[in-house]
């Protein structure tokens, strides 16, 4: 572990001390143990350049989304028809769209939309998927059969087709797109949670807790969640990419985000009408989607090596 490239960074005395304290496995407190774990994870992330690059892009995305007003000078919704479809230039780095809006500005604000969708879907899906999967695995019997049947039905559709059908049924709009995507993302999470739960179902500590009269909710929360968390987190990170791609696909088909909201997929779709005269309108949003979705994939891949080596 001392030959880890991370050590190269710790040159000054203070950092060396901190490094040694963190790396030392003779813990003196639980706090130290926890920090140790996080630190080791951090070091292994640094050791994996691709994963670290993915992580860096994700962090950048968050910063861009947070600082959008600072990073831009134009109004993302301000139209000026006299400036429509201008090619990239010093004043408009990524050109302007059919309403004369600055594409760079809209890409930056689009980062917010992308994060909004992917975080919201994840926040909805994680607990639902976990509860369904864990209860199926924990309770077994007919509960398991029924829940897994429902899961399988949802799994039997290709996910974009299902999302498309749901968001068409719910009507356009970003909230509806979130619901539609969530409906297609939860089944694999439930499957995973069930499988993980099954492996711990008869573990000594679970049986012991049951004997002490702990209720199911408490057992799931206290014992199963911490054990399932790593693999579910990895899965969710890898899912981010498919959430982003599905959202963009929906936006592309005119469902999802509605004007004037800046959303990359919808921007690419709108630009397709001007494909021959304004290549930047489809190319740049497409690249943005590609970069972010690749970053989540790389980061997720690396995270799996660190958190969940069993499934790597």
């Amino acid at each position: 572990m001392t030959q880890d490239p991370g050590t190269a960074m710790t040159k000054s005395g203070y950092f060396t001390d901190l490094h040694n304290w963190l790396i030392n496995e003779d813990f003196t407190s639980t706090r130290q143990a926890r920090l140790h774990k996080a630190y080791v994870a951090w070091l292994s992330l640094l050791a994996n350049p691709l994963a670290f690059a993915g992580f860096a892009v994700v962090v950048t995305l968050v910063i861009i989304a947070a600082l959008a007003p600072v990073l831009t000078v134009y109004d993302p919704y301000g139209q000026d028809l006299t400036m429509a479809l201008k090619a990239p230039s010093a004043s408009h780095w990524f050109g302007t769209d059919e309403f004369g809006r600055d594409v760079y500005t809209r890409i930056v604000y689009g980062a917010r939309t992308t994060l909004y969708i992917s975080i919201l879907v994840t926040v909805i899906v994680a607990p639902i998927g976990f509860v369904i999967g864990a209860s199926a695995g924990y309770l077994g019997g007919w509960v398991d059969v029924v829940l897994m049947r429902v899961t399988d039905i949802f799994l039997s559709f290709p996910s974009l087709v299902l999302a498309l059908a749901f968001s068409a049924a719910l009507g356009p709009g970003i909230e509806n797109a979130v619901i539609a995507i969530a409906l297609t993302i939860w089944p694999p999470i439930a499957r995973l949670a069930r499988a993980e739960t099954l492996t711990f179902r008869n573990a000594d500590f679970v049986v012991a807790a049951e004997l002490q009269g702990a209720r199911m909710g408490r057992i799931l929360l206290r014992h199963i969640v911490p054990l399932c968390a790593p693999s579910i987190i990895v899965r969710l990170t890898l899912n981010m990419s498919s959430i982003i791609l599905t959202a963009a696909g929906l936006g592309f088909l005119g469902l999802g985000a509605q004007p004037p909201m800046a959303e990359w997929g919808a921007m690419a779709a709108a630009g397709r009408k001007y494909l021959l005269d304004a290549w930047w309108l489809t190319t740049i949003p497409g690249l943005a989607i590609l970069v972010v979705s690749l970053a989540f994939n790389l980061f997720g891949d690396g995270l799996r090596d660190i958190l969940d080596p069993r499934n790597a």
Binding site: G249, A268, W279, T282, G286, L294, N297, D301
Partner: peptide, 17 residues
């Protein structure tokens, strides 16, 4: 990974272009 991450409609449009 690129194949996993690329919006398929976007490659299509770019290829046509």
């Amino acid at each position: 990974l690129l194949g996993h991450s690329t919006p398929i409609f976007w490659i299509g449009t770019t290829v046509i272009l």
